[in-house]
Computed example of a mutant assay.
Amino acid sequence: MKILVTGTAGFIGSHVATKLLDRGDDVIGIDNLNDYYDVNLKKARLARLSERSNYTHVHADLADREAIEEAFSKHKPQRVVNLAAQAGVRYAAKNPHIYVSSNVTGFLHILEGCRHHEVEHLVFASTSSVYGANTAMPFSEHESTEHPLTLYAASKKANEQMAHSYAHLYGIPCTGLRFFTVYGPWGRPDMALFLFTKAMLAGEPIKVFNHGKHKRSFTYVDDIAEGVVRTLDVVPSKSEAWSGDAPDPASSGVAPYHIYNIGNEEPVELLHYIEVLEQCLGRKAKMQMLPMQAGDVPDTEADVSELVEAVGYRPQVSVETGVANFVDWYREYYG
Score class of each variant (00 low, 15 high):
Thr219Ala: 03
Tyr260Ala: 09
Val80Met: 14
Glu146Asp: 15
Tyr131Ile: 03
Ser239Glu: 02
Lys2Val: 06
Tyr152Gly: 10
Val323Pro: 03
Lys213Val: 01
Glu278Pro: 01
Val100Tyr: 15
Ser305Lys: 06
Arg115Ile: 11
Ala225Glu: 12
Val268Gln: 09
Ala84Asn: 06
Glu278Asp: 03
Leu83Phe: 05
Ala225His: 08
Asp61Tyr: 13
Phe179Tyr: 15
Pro185Asn: 01
Thr8Arg: 07
Ala92Gln: 11
Ile3Pro: 01
His75Ile: 04
Ala87Cys: 10
Phe209Cys: 01
Ser155Met: 09
Gly244Glu: 00
Pro256Tyr: 05
Glu70Val: 07
Leu177Asn: 02
Lys198Gln: 15
Glu141Tyr: 01
Tyr313Trp: 13
Gly312His: 08
Ala255Leu: 11
His168Asn: 05
Lys42Leu: 10
Ser165Arg: 11
Phe107Ile: 13
Leu20Arg: 07
Thr127Val: 04
Ala324Val: 10
Gly88Trp: 05
Gly335Arg: 08
Ala67Pro: 07
Ala136Trp: 01
Met162Leu: 15
His164Asp: 04
Thr175Gln: 06
Ala324Lys: 15
His272Tyr: 12
Ala133Phe: 09
Val130Met: 04
His15Asp: 07
Pro249Asn: 02
Ser217Cys: 12
Glu66Tyr: 07
Pro249Leu: 00
Lys238Ser: 03
Asp328Val: 12
Gly312Lys: 07
Glu306His: 09
